[in-house]
Amino acid sequence: MLKIQKLHIGIFAFFIISFPFVISRIPALGNYTNIMVFAGIYTIITIGLSLFIGYAGQISLGHAAFFGIGAYTSGILTARFGINPWMCLIIGIFIVSVIAFLVGAPSLKLKGHYLAMATLAFGIIVYIIFNQELEYTGGPDGMTGIPGLSLFALKLNSVEKYYFFVWGIVFAAFLFTINLIQSRTGRALRAIHASEAAASAMGINVPRFKLIVFIYSAILASLAGSLYAHYINFINPSSFDLFFAIKLLIMIALGGMHSIWGAIVGAVLITFLNYEWLHFFKEFEVIIYGAILLLVTIFLPDGLVGIPGIIKKFVKRKL
């Protein structure tokens, strides 16, 4: 790993660790740590999805479904069958990898909007199943009774504890993904993004790499789903609907889709906008949200991680 990158990761780690301590001193921001927990959960999804979208040049509207399958596997197995949560988390990951393989193998042959539609269709079908299978999922009203997590003897029962737990996982996923990008796989992905034909002429097994990244990102989504279910102790289908799938895309595009940092920034920012800051505008919330999205897409084509570059350019020109 490069020196400068190590520095940045260090700063990132410091920021994450100090965040709750700073927040706890400011009473007016008391619930920010709580929001950061959800931001962290969503970040786990966007890190994987950004690899699939930004690096491999594909698209998926199906990751809300993987998130949901992870959450429902954990929810149903713990609440209805009393299985150990950690076991459920692993079962969830296993189920999701199998489904991602079955869906991905035929779908990833599709290109562009066709791939978008195929993953969208998959997402909607899963959503309908969550709604219809009342006996297991509780239907549209959702299901309660999902226990919290504990790490060995340590119960993760406070916001702060869960915060560190979730962001620890975000960090691990982040480092793993960065390593992946700098490995042979990452180079292959970038080659696929540039041109699938050229990549395959260079001897890259294009379908295999695409499928690997798809399954990897689905696993991260499933993991996030389990963490979500155990944190909020309740799940219902509308948390995993099409609008959430679109929200994931927005997070990635807004943050900057060609960088894993963008996935983090986008997820955190959109979470705070949706869950906190836009409340300020009351009924105008929706309009402001649309306007922000539009302005960012128009003026920041590289997403928010492109801002410093723009500022630098501007300063250079002035000098």
Partner: peptide, 25 residues
């Protein structure tokens, strides 16, 4: 690929935080 965005991300996050604090107050 992996150089500049990190600084940017931190700047951005701080900006977001400041905005948040401002709004909240």
């Amino acid at each position: 690929v992996s150089k500049k965005p990190i600084v940017k991300a931190i700047v951005v996050i701080s900006v977001i935080l400041l905005c948040g604090i401002f709004m909240f107050s």
